[in-house]
Every structure is written in structure tokens, then in C-alpha cells.
Design a protein around this nucleic acid. Structure first.
Ligand code: SF4
Ligand code: SF4
Lengths: 163, 163
DNA sequence: TGAATACAGGACTGAACCAGTCCTATATGT
DNA sequence: ACATATAGGACTGGTTCAGTCCTGTATTCA
């Protein structure tokens, strides 16, 4: 399904919630506001804290705030904090040199890596500030380059010698 | 990690392999060419067949061919054949009215659905003919619309009353 | 100081999903 | 008939995920 995990979803919801104010929010309060169970909320926020997405303050009057302004935090960063690096395929993990056993003779590897990069870029550019308002549709569109003609030509004869 | 399953990866590799010729390929032959184990290859191809991505011919001299020309089959279709509808979040499944329990008071739902739609579009436009050659980078780019200024302004004051 | 608050870290569990194999049935060509 | 090759589905071990809970530490304030 190409889906982010539930925990990651919670993370985006919570982080977006934090974007609303600069006051520290206790995990318990955020749980009440979002309806997400408190232990789970706490777990997610701890992970976000370790990843540097949110800052934490212990003790009474403590809580969580965003580590930086909302418009400087891309949701890719939030996703990565919970799930690790974005990698659409096993071979497109840019952090580790993860080796797929089929890699030596795999013809689609290079293209998957480019697709992965595009997704990564798109999610990096959408910030928590964007998520707080319904304007994302004006920000993200997938555009084909002017090489459409070339592609169509190649597409007509995929078995041709196109080296 | 926002990853497609291994089976889906195999499906794209196999389908791209089929794009090279119009002759029927037996599952066994494809398995040898791609190094993917034969039972797994067979399973994946059967799923692709049921989804209408590939056509099958039983009996001696039989095998699999693409159901349509390679440049008419988007990889989104291949992914969907194995994993079901693309849905980045639970609420962004366009096929079913899947209801998330947090949906009523979730502020990021609309934006996730737009992101999901963009990803869906991008993967639909990349065809098997594209995957057979390293030209995808010329085809997919993420573009921001001209509303960047508006966004930046909003991003500066996410806590402001922007209703 | 001591109590209350709130985060940090990690262990733990049941459930769901995934990867891969195998068996039986059916269709096709020689 | 017989060999070939797909169709469908059952089945299993392993892994990952969602969620909870416990112990420890830092901070505030009376
Ligand atoms: S190398 Fe090929 S088979 Fe291996 S993960 Fe990448 S795309 Fe998939
Ligand atoms: S409604 Fe909100 S919480 Fe539910 S799946 Fe969609 S984004 Fe996630």
C-alpha cells in the first residue's frame, strides 16, 4: 500500500499540533487534544525528541515544543524520525549501502533511485507550517519535463537499441 | 520506510523484463533471467495476470506477455496489482471509505490526501517503457507552484489567525 | 528537603503482515 | 496420451508493528 506507519502518522499530527503555539505542551495534554492514547503519544514524542524534531523540557511546567520554526521542518524529517530513511525500494536507501541480491543484474534499480529521490524531495519541501493549513495542493504538483516527445518515441519501441 | 514490498519490487522487475519482447515468457525462464526464485516468480506473475497487467497463455509454448504496450502501463498499476490501492495514510485510500478513528478532528487529513494524489499521479505517469531505460530523471520533478510567496508568508506565522 | 510533575529509555506482548514454498487442478500444443 | 505451463489457494516461519508498562532522571515549587 506504500503507506507510512500509524506511529508516523501520529508523529505528523502531533508535530503539526505543536506548530500552533510556542508554549510547551505536555504529552498528556497533546494526547487529550488529539485523542491519541497517552502512552503512544508519549512514545512518539520521545522519538521525535531524540531525532531533534522537537525540544523537550523536563519537570513541572515542562513539555514539548518544536525544535525549530514550523516552516523549517519538512515532514520528511518527521517521517524519518520514526521510520528511518525513506527508501521506496531496498536499493534506494541513501543512508546505508544496503545491497539487494538482485542488484548486479537489475535493470530498474537506477530509475527506482530517481523516483525515491523525487519523493524524498517532495516530502522535504512540505513543512509543518504547510500541513497546518490546506494549501498543500498549491505547492506540490508532479511535472513532466519537456522531454515528453523523446520519451514517447522510446516508449513506442522499448525493444529497440536505444543506447 | 515508506517502502514497496519485495513482491511488488519483483513485479516491476518482471514486468519490465517482459517489456523487452512480445514473445511469451514462461515463468521459469523469467526466473532464470532475473535470478528470482521460480515459485516466487510464478506467484507474482499470477497476481499480475489476474490484475490484467500481463496476459497469459497456458500449455506448451505458453507463458506471459504484457497485456498492453509497455508505454501504456504505469508502474502504479503494477504496484496496485500486488499491494492494492496506494494509500500513504489510512485516510487517503481512494477506493474504500476507510475511516480513521481520529479523522473527525484531524487537521492534516486533507493535506495527506493531496500528497497521496500527487504520488499516485507521478507513479501512474512513469510507464514500464520508462523503467526499461534510464530516463526517468528527465520525466519526474517536483515543482512548487507560483504561490511560494503566499506559503512563505503563512509559514512565518503559523500561529497567526489565518482563517 | 521533599513531593509532584514530566520526560528518557527500554523491555515486553499480542497481532498483523510478509516472503516464500508447495500441492492440486486446468488448459494447451504435439 | 503426454508433456508443458498457468490458476488458485493453502500453509508456515519470520519479521515488523502497535501499544503498554516499568524504572530512572531532571525540574519546579512549597
Ligand atoms: S536492485 Fe532491483 S531488485 Fe534490488 S531492490 Fe533495487 S530495484 Fe529491487
Ligand atoms: S485522518 Fe488524520 S490521523 Fe487519520 S489517517 Fe488521516 S491523517 Fe492520519
Amino acid at each position: 500500500m506504500l503507506r507510512i506507519s500509524k506511529m508516523t502518522d501520529y508523529a505528523v499530527v502531533l508535530a503539526t499540533h505543536l506548530a500552533a503555539t510556542k508554549e510547551p505542551h505536555a504529552a498528556r495534554d497533546l494526547a487529550l487534544e488529539t485523542q491519541i492514547p497517552e502512552p503512544t503519544t508519549s512514545k512518539v514524542l520521545k522519538q521525535l525528541s531524540r531525532a531533534g524534531v522537537v525540544a523537550s523540557q523536563r519537570g513541572a511546567k515542562g513539555g514539548y515544543t518544536l525544535a525549530r520554526p514550523a516552516h523549517e521542518i519538512g515532514i520528511e524529517e518527521v517521517i524519518q524520525a520514526i521510520e528511518g530513511p525513506i527508501a521506496v525500494t531496498e536499493c534506494s536507501d541513501e543512508s546505508t549501502d544496503s545491497l539487494c541480491e538482485y542488484e548486479p543484474n537489475c535493470g530498474v534499480r537506477a530509475n527506482w533511485q530517481r523516483i525515491n529521490h523525487a519523493v524524498h524531495q517532495a516530502l522535504s519541501q512540505i513543512t509543518l507550517a504547510d500541513m497546518a493549513f490546506p494549501f498543500v495542493d498549491t505547492l506540490i504538483t508532479i511535472a513532466r519535463s519537456g522531454k515528453e516527445a523523446e520519451r514517447a518515441r522510446l516508449g513506442e519501441s522499448p525493444q529497440g537499441d536505444a543506447h
